[in-house]
Design a protein around this nucleic acid. Structure first.
Lengths: 224, 224
DNA sequence: CCACGACGTTACTGGTCAGTAACATAGTGT
DNA sequence: ACACTATGTTACTGACCAGTAACGTCGTGG
């Protein structure tokens, strides 16, 4: 029995491997800096198979960004589902996610934003994906703050959004000081805008949710 | 008289033309996306002359970034000199500069940050220039807010810095909403931290400095 | 007038890259 | 055994790109 032993039996299908390799290389070295040969090799396959699954490098880039967008959306949804009907806990969990992202030593900024910088052609399909994703993220923050009863949820969301974006870009090109202090900023900013009645209740709750959410966030997401 | 008429007599020397062309093309299309041939052609010269002035593309990139850094520093200094011993007016002028940068329709983010995204190799000479510049900018903000008597100038500077960075990156990949509202954010943030005694005095002064500084900022800087 | 230096022109090298063609191989279902 | 499909392999094209060599031109300063 077993004359047809699958070499590395549990290896995922080529398409997945290619996408995973592209994701890693694109994020680490940049989209333009990575050739399709390198991706195929990293995926333990070859260029032909790559081109059978993705018609062109641009298509692969789009698939890469769409995967990132989906994971970012899923992560957000999971965050929401973990604390149903408790927007304050959701906010706190998100802040902790932000902290985790920014203190990850492999952090090289937001893959989406970096892609937007690299793909400057305004008609590149990638841009639409990025634009949609970022707009969605901002709107999700607005909604969350609105549900939490914050005054001026749009303003708070814009500010939080820009602070996070700023942190992720500046962690790539500065001495990282400001970026690493962004969590403290977020906390005090949110405290300032939280509905007054809940302040002390929220403070009490943080001690709890801090442990709960801290352990289960193991997904290595690179998104907002 | 005048048998040797200089064709296009007032044309600047090749080195300047090359740097100007590089600056334009690098900023508009990205550093990696622009070849030296294209730069030479845009500078109305040729590749050989380019390589006589800049030993390599990397050297040209460094010169490009250093020029940007110098202009950014000069602009900051001019801002300071325009309102000597009046840090509040300097702050207001800087905010107006920010507004002008962000509403410029040719804005494609901070050239420095974009370069950092494109040049991922940690040992690339460009990275040091960018890092130094950004750190300097942040420190200049700290100093300015400190001179203006703000409480916690470091915190305010970090927040302002990250908001601006966030605005400049997000203007490239989002529906630009949040970025365009950053000036309002800055104003209210600064108002919150300004020394209490000066608030109404500052408000009165804004009406004046708004006209003064608004007209003379014609330099097309792309820097923080 | 001459020599020198700055600049221009052409053509080339070697390398990389996206994308394709042609053929070989292996698993799978019938 | 057969056919079909997914995958692997090799080799290629054409384009682009960074960088160089060799030579030609022109203006300036002595």
């Amino acid at each position: 029995m077993g004359q047809t032993i699958k070499t590395a039996a549990v290896q995922p299908p080529p398409r997945e491997r290619i996408l995973a390799a592209a994701r890693d290389l694109f994020y680490r070295h940049g989209i333009r800096a990575v050739g399709v040969d390198a991706i195929a090799e990293a995926a333990a396959t070859n260029k032909m198979t790559l081109y059978r699954h993705f018609g062109s490098k641009d298509e692969l880039i789009s698939a890469y960004l769409q995967e990132l967008a989906k994971e970012g959306d899923d992560l957000w949804q999971r965050l929401r589902d973990t604390y149903p009907d408790d927007p304050h806990a959701q906010i706190e969990a998100w802040v902790q996610h932000v902290e985790q992202v920014l203190t990850d030593c492999s952090e090289r900024g937001c893959a989406m934003a970096n892609a937007a910088v690299e793909m400057r052609e305004i008609d590149h399909p990638a841009r639409q994906i990025i634009d949609d994703y970022k707009t969605r993220k901002r709107d999700q923050l607005v909604r969350l703050f609105s549900e939490a009863g914050y005054g001026e949820p749009e303003q708070v969301a814009d500010e939080v959004f820009l602070l996070f974006e700023g942190a992720r870009i500046s962690i790539q090109c500065c001495s990282k000081g400001p970026a690493l202090r962004v969590v403290r900023m977020l906390r005090s900013l949110l405290a300032d805008h939280a509905p007054k009645v809940e302040v002390e209740a929220l403070a009490a709750k943080n001690a709890v949710s801090e442990r709960e959410a801290g352990t289960k966030s193991s997904a290595k997401s690179k998104e907002t």
